[in-house]
Design a protein around this nucleic acid. Structure first.
Lengths: 152, 152
DNA sequence: AGTGAAAGATTATCGGA
DNA sequence: TCCGATAATCTTTCACT
């Protein structure tokens, strides 16, 4: 039993690219009256398929030219440690993603900073809050692809 | 010389969280008339600070429960290879991010798939299109943080 | 920078396939 | 149950002060 049909999928596809489309034009694109469109969007929002609508900013315009991936190994992987790590990453706005990986000893952080010095400050703040036995950073030289659009 | 002031920053902060705020409520939040707000947003869009507005979907609702990071090493890192790699990642919608990393031999891919089998299909399609000497995948067990919000 | 009015978009309700 | 049409409401846009 499918949760949504082709029309829903089409709507989602367009809204993932531009959430400012008017119901009018969206309706035309998917072949539905603006009203039918509206109802579908509402249920997609209510059922949580559409989480929210956000503005995406240009990192470079904000002086955040550098993306860094931080790989972390730890011995102490108890719940208390994870809790502290979780709180730390949540509260640090440069950190855009934090993941516990397979292997159960590895954590990965994705962050945006202005330069290597700025990364170093982030690093120091991080290790001050959470003990880590092994930390290594890899910097992004070229962003070949970066999207929020999920496959449908 | 700063490109924007505190009010701009406030506006951006809110729009990064919810781009559907009306000028009325946004104005109240930042302490500006709806109109002053509107003008600032327009320039922020024109100067490219605001890139676009998009809907964020729930991966799980779409059956995309698994995030995978794919690390790639290659001998042949000439322009032709990079071009092929770039085209391949651009055209594969499960791939959300692709990065050339420091070290000049390493590439990293961030992708969303439904399960490990689905990853395997992605992997096969990828190596069919681009030669790679060494590929390794790490799966995300727990998503501790994931945001599109940039620090201001 | 703020007001008010016109244009445009969104939401609620209703009748019909 | 889902669609489309119509009407009421709210938002955005813009000329003017």
């Amino acid at each position: 039993m499918e949760k949504f049909d082709n029309l829903d999928r089409k709507i989602l596809k367009y809204l993932q690219q531009d959430s400012d489309l008017s119901l009018e034009t969206l309706g035309e694109k998917v072949g539905l009256s603006r009203n039918a469109c509206w109802r579908r969007i509402k249920t997609l929002e209510e059922t949580g398929v559409i989480k929210k609508r956000v503005a995406l900013l240009a990192p470079n315009a904000l002086g955040l030219g550098l993306t860094v991936f931080i790989q972390i190994r730890t011995q102490s992987h108890d719940t208390a440690w994870l809790e502290k790590f979780s709180q730390a990453t949540q509260s640090m706005p440069e950190i855009l993603g934090a993941y516990r990986m397979t292997g159960d000893l590895d954590y990965l952080i994705r962050a945006r900073v202005s330069d290597v010095e700025d990364y170093d400050r982030l690093y120091r703040r991080l290790i001050k809050r959470v003990e880590m036995s092994d930390v290594s950073a890899s910097f992004v030289m070229e962003e070949i692809k970066e999207t929020t659009e999920l496959p449908l």
